[in-house]
Design a protein around this nucleic acid. Structure first.
Length: 506
RNA sequence: GGCCCGUUCGUCUAGGGGUUAGGACGUUAGAUUUUCAUUCUAGAAACAGGGGUUCGAUUCCCCUACGGGCUACCA
């Protein structure tokens, strides 16, 4: 069997925010493509005009950019199989649907949505298929003359696949192995809608064929309709070119049950979308991982390990490592509950291992969004190095480093005042003198001077550390005090001591 | 209801006919840090149940239970 060039696609509908599971599907497609030196295409499945949302397509592409997952072919980038928007390919699909009708593998159906709804209501387990199609209004039950007349009058109609009787459709899924279905149990899915647009079922087969897709990875929710797709590949005469299928396990709610949804994020307090999504219709803004302070590397890393591992204990992977180590058949079969705690751990790890330089622009944005002005790049780098080990989210950099850029607005006086004495005030007055007269202003020397002076004044150094910290930071957190003081500089340190002294002595 | 898929610590998972069933998150305890976080050490914590097959099943097979998905002119 000749090795086909690897070509995979991510085919989202532009209907709203891009879900975690969607990004994981992109990622697995992307990793597989890059690993096998293949192509990764982005195809927009905008065949449902009712659900189409303005701006959603651009948003999806922005999400991919943020993640660093660039498609080789897309509506934006173009490519040899353009157009990559199904709405722009509308004219292509009808031909194939009609061909199926001529071959007897599909038929026209004239039933109105209301009629079908009524059937579903009144007949238990109703499905448009073997058991009921003869009693419905379609080109199988009507005479040729009746059908022609209906068609001539432009009666709204759809084209449905005619599922064969008593057959078994089976295939080998890369992730779950052998899967099989009884055709009698599958209904006659609509292929072409009354508005002339294809449904997903037709479009995915036609486009995957035309775009020479070699491997089709999608969520497990598609498994039940796989027999329809398989039959279509066969009926259209393309079976030899059919991609290999892999149905990915779903990402589940952390508590309770079911697929993870946007609502769960709001309810449980974590993001579900890659980036914030603003719904113009409802005016609702749904926060995303990016806005919450996740690094794209961490986001990808946590998604990759949700349902996949390389067989070792390694959990932290760069994108390049993932490309190198990824293997679709090591993806697990079972759905995975999303754990936000672990997600945060991944982000903390990535912040810790990232260089200040690569964090800089994001941190600057976080600070500036809060009104903190950053002027000195080098200073910012040093601040980041000093505090990044205590940040879980990028947004934590505000709380952890704002005091390096502006004096504390208030002090945690409750931690100081009860034990504050005139002697301590005197110590700090004297310490200002020490600082001013010191030549080398660096942590170790400063600490030595601090302790020497404390001893001289007969105060335990430990009693003075906390007040000193609160003078500089305003609260009980942060790196070593002497590191903070050193980075703040002589002048600023003195200023802060003086200012705090006023507050403490009051 | 029908069809399909799944089931190892609370969660993500490794493993695989004979193992002290391993790791990670979280959690508990301790050490370090004269703050907080980091870091380090230790601990608790799992093979859904029942039948087979086998000298031996958590691992293979069947059934049950449970969970999930689908059941639209949505994707």
């Amino acid at each position: 069997m000749p090795d086909k060039k690897v070509r995979v696609r991510f085919a989202p509908s532009p209907t709203g925010g891009l879900h975690l599971g969607g990004v994981r599907t992109v990622l697995f497609n992307y990793l597989f493509a890059k690993k096998h030196h293949g192509d990764f295409v982005l195809r927009i499945e905008d065949t449902d005009q009712n659900r189409y949302v303005e701006g959603a397509e651009q948003y999806i592409m922005d999400c991919l950019k943020w993640c660093g997952l660039f498609p080789d072919e897309s509506p934006e980038a173009g490519g040899p199989y353009a157009p990559y928007r199904q709405s722009e390919r509308k004219s292509i699909y009808r031909e194939y649907a009609e061909k199926l009708v001529r071959q007897g593998h599909a038929y026209y159906a004239f039933d109105t949505p209301e009629e079908l709804e009524q059937n579903r209501r009144e007949i238990p387990n109703f499905q448009y298929g073997l058991a009921y199609r003869d009693g419905l209004r379609n080109s199988l039950s009507l005479t040729q003359h009746e059908v022609d007349e209906l068609l001539d009058r432009h009666t709204p109609h759809v084209i449905r696949i005619k599922m064969p009787a008593d057959e078994r459709v089976s295939f080998d899924d890369v992730i779950r192995g052998h899967v099989s279905f009884e055709t009698n149990q599958v209904d006659d899915k609509v292929l072409l809608k009354a508005d002339g647009m294809p449904t997903y079922h037709l479009a995915v087969v036609v486009d995957d064929y035309l775009m020479k897709i070699s491997h089709a990875f999608r969520g497990e929710e598609w498994l039940p309709s796989a027999p329809v797709h398989l039959l279509l590949w066969e009926y259209l005469g393309w079976k030899a070119d059919m991609p290999q299928w892999a149905h990915l396990p779903l990402i589940l709610k952390p508590d309770g049950h079911g697929k993870l949804s946007k609502r769960d994020g709001a309810r449980l307090g974590f993001p579900v979308y890659a980036m914030s999504w603003f719904d113009a219709k409802t005016g609702e803004l749904t926060p995303g991982f990016r806005e919450l302070g996740f690094l794209p590397e961490a986001f990808l890393n946590l998604l990759a390990t949700l349902g996949w591992n390389d067989g070792t204990d390694q959990e932290l992977f760069t994108l390049d490592e993932l490309i190198e180590k990824f293997s679709i058949d090591r993806v697990s079969k079972a759905g995975a509950k999303f754990d936000f705690e672990k997600a945060k751990w991944f982000n903390a790890e990535w912040i810790k291992k990232s260089e200040a330089g690569t964090l800089k622009s994001e941190v600057r944005k976080v600070l500036e969004d809060k009104g903190v002005v950053v002027t000195d790049e080098n200073y910012l780098n040093q601040v980041i190095d000093l505090v990044k080990d205590r940040c879980v989210l990028l947004t934590d950099f505000y709380q952890q480093s704002a005091y390096f850029f502006e004096q504390p607005k208030e002090y945690d006086v409750n931690s100081v005042k009860p034990k504050w004495t005139d002697a301590k005030a005197e110590f700090f007055n004297a310490f200002i003198g020490t600082i001013n007269s010191t030549k080398v202003f660096e942590p170790a020397a400063l600490e030595t001077d601090f302790k020497a002076l404390a001893e001289e004044k007969g105060i335990k150094a430990g009693e003075l550390m906390l007040p000193f910290r609160i003078m500089l930071v305003g609260a009980k957190f942060g790196p070593h005090v002497f590191d903070i003081a050193t980075l703040l500089g002589k002048e600023e340190t003195v200023k802060r001591i003086e200012k705090a002294l006023v507050a403490f002595n009051n």
